[in-house]
């Protein structure tokens, strides 16, 4: 079948990730397994807690879903080390009893 109207717009080779929905990128984090997801519907933030195969290591991934909640954008990750460092140098008044 000849169809001259259709053209390929880009010659760029597409990776498999590009064909998948955005949020699935989440599962492509190396070595880590997602343990828990938590969504803040008022702020449109998705948090993911990922544990390393190596025990004791973890990562909290933060994704921004945009103003309308339709986008998906990686913002930052809170790693084991960064959290621990901050925890150690935390000012005393922030450390509260329960």
């Amino acid at each position: 079948m000849k169809n001259t109207d259709l053209k390929r717009l880009s010659d760029k080779k597409q990776r498999i990730e590009d064909y998948l929905p955005d949020f699935q990128q989440l599962f492509y984090t190396n070595n880590y397994t997602i343990v828990q997801l938590s969504y803040d519907e008022t702020r449109h933030i998705l948090y993911a807690l990922a544990h390393d195969t190596n025990p004791g290591r973890f990562k909290i991934l933060v994704y921004d879903l945009g103003i309308t909640g339709q986008n998906f954008e990686f913002v930052l990750e809170i790693t084991h080390n960064s959290l621990k460092n901050r925890y150690i140098f935390l000012p005393k008044f922030l450390l509260k009893l329960p």
């Binding site: 702020r43 004791g56 909290i60």
Partner: peptide, 30 residues
Amino acid sequence: KIEKTELADLQVTSICAIDRRQADEICLLA
């Protein structure tokens, strides 16, 4: 100050998003 070694096995076991209705600034509880 807490010695690093003592915190070696610090592991986050659970997270919980704190939404805007509950707190103005705090976003996440680990």
